[in-house]
Computed example of a mutant assay.
Amino acid sequence: MSSKQALLIIDYTNDFVDDKGALTCGKPGQDLEGEIFNLAEKMYQNGDRVWFPTDVHKPNDPYHPETKLFPPHNVRGTWGRELYGGLQDWYNDHNDGETVKLFDKTRYSAFAGTDLDLRLRERNIDTLHLVGVCTDICVLHTAVDAYNLNYNLVIHENGVASFDQKGHEWALGHFKNCLGAEMVK
């Protein structure tokens, strides 16, 4: 496989997107489903990697800083941690542990405490396409770390959302103006 790009679908889970989710961004997140699905399929057909860095927590973990900030969410083995909507079926059908795979993350950034950078470099990937939620939290922190590690960034504006519209808009400007990301509508 010679592709040098990967799609990271960040935290697109029931807890962050579904109306019944523990920490949902609601309709703005739900409206992304078609865009994310189409992009995943397109990049998969192109031979690109489609990876799902996905938040995972233990309820009331006294050692995790988010415990003080947010209610329990994305708990391993729960409905809340499953991918939202039709993306769960797409993932189940395509997951091969390499081209398409889900991996755990426990912090906002998909790089913090994971081997993501190592895995990307092993595969000579230098360009990351980012979609998911929330624009101004996990997508932003992943983008900042990717920038600091010298990855090229492509942000799909119709593939990111937040529960905070002002934060969403600020993050879009930050991606473009401070991280030099290519912005795609």
Results as ranks from 00 to 15, higher is better:
Ser3Gln: 14
Ser3Pro: 01
Ser3Glu: 11
Leu7Met: 05
Leu8Ser: 08
Ile9Phe: 07
Asp11Gly: 05
Tyr12Ile: 09
Thr13Cys: 03
Phe16Ser: 05
Phe16Arg: 07
Val17Lys: 02
Asp18Cys: 02
Lys20Ser: 13
Lys20Trp: 02
Gly21Asn: 13
Ala22Ile: 00
Leu23Thr: 10
Leu23Met: 11
Cys25His: 00
Cys25Trp: 00
Cys25Gln: 00
Gly26Pro: 00
Gly26Trp: 00
Leu32Asp: 06
Glu33Ala: 13
Gly34Thr: 14
Gly34Ser: 15
Asn38Cys: 02
Asn38Glu: 14
Ala40Asp: 07
Lys42Tyr: 07
Met43Ser: 00
Tyr44His: 15
Gln45Asp: 15
Asn46Met: 08
Asn46Glu: 15
Asp48Glu: 12
Asp48Gly: 04
Arg49Pro: 00
Val50Leu: 03
Trp51Cys: 07
Phe52Cys: 04
Pro53Tyr: 04
Asp55Met: 06
His57Lys: 03
Lys58Leu: 15
Lys58Pro: 01
Asn60Gln: 14
Pro62His: 10
Pro62Lys: 11
Pro62Tyr: 09
Tyr63Leu: 05
Pro65Asp: 02
Pro65Tyr: 00
Glu66Arg: 08
Glu66Ser: 12
Thr67Phe: 05
Lys68Tyr: 01
Leu69Gln: 13
Pro71Asn: 06
Pro72Asp: 15
His73Asn: 09
His73Arg: 02
His73Ser: 03
His73Pro: 02
Asn74His: 01
Asn74Leu: 09
Asn74Gln: 04
Val75Phe: 00
Arg76Gln: 14
Gly77Lys: 14
Arg81Met: 11
Leu83His: 14
Gly85Gln: 05
Gly86Tyr: 08
Gly86Glu: 13
Gly86Ser: 08
Trp90Ile: 12
Trp90Lys: 10
Tyr91Ile: 01
His94Asn: 13
His94Asp: 01
Asn95Arg: 12
Asp96His: 11
Gly97Asn: 12
Lys101Met: 15
Phe103Trp: 02
Lys105Met: 12
Thr106Lys: 10
Ser109Cys: 08
Ala110Ile: 05
Ala112Ser: 08
Thr114Ile: 04
Leu116Cys: 06
Leu116Gln: 09
Asp117Glu: 15
Asp117Thr: 10
Asp117Arg: 09
Arg119Asn: 08
Arg121Tyr: 11
Asn124Leu: 02
Asn124Phe: 01
Asp126Thr: 12
Leu128Pro: 12
His129Asn: 13
Leu130His: 04
Leu130Arg: 05
Leu130Ser: 06
Val131Ile: 02
Gly132Gln: 03
Val133Cys: 15
Thr135Arg: 08
Thr135Ala: 12
Asp136Cys: 11
Asp136Trp: 10
Ile137Ala: 09
Leu140His: 13
Thr142Trp: 03
Thr142Ser: 15
Ala143Arg: 04
Asp145Arg: 01
Ala146Met: 02
Tyr147Asp: 11
Asn148Tyr: 07
Asn148Thr: 09
Asn150Ser: 14
Asn150Ile: 04
Asn150Val: 06
Leu153Met: 14
Val154Phe: 01
Ile155Glu: 06
Asn158Lys: 13
Asn158Gln: 10
Val160Tyr: 09
Ala161Val: 03
Ser162Glu: 07
Ser162His: 08
Asp164Leu: 03
Gln165Gly: 11
Lys166Ser: 13
Gly167Met: 12
Trp170Leu: 02
His174Trp: 02
His174Pro: 00
Cys178Arg: 09
Cys178Glu: 13
Leu179Ser: 05
Ala181Leu: 11
Ala181Phe: 07
Glu182Met: 04
Glu182Lys: 15
Glu182Tyr: 01
Met183Ser: 04
Met183Leu: 15
Val184Pro: 06
Val184Tyr: 01
Lys185Thr: 09
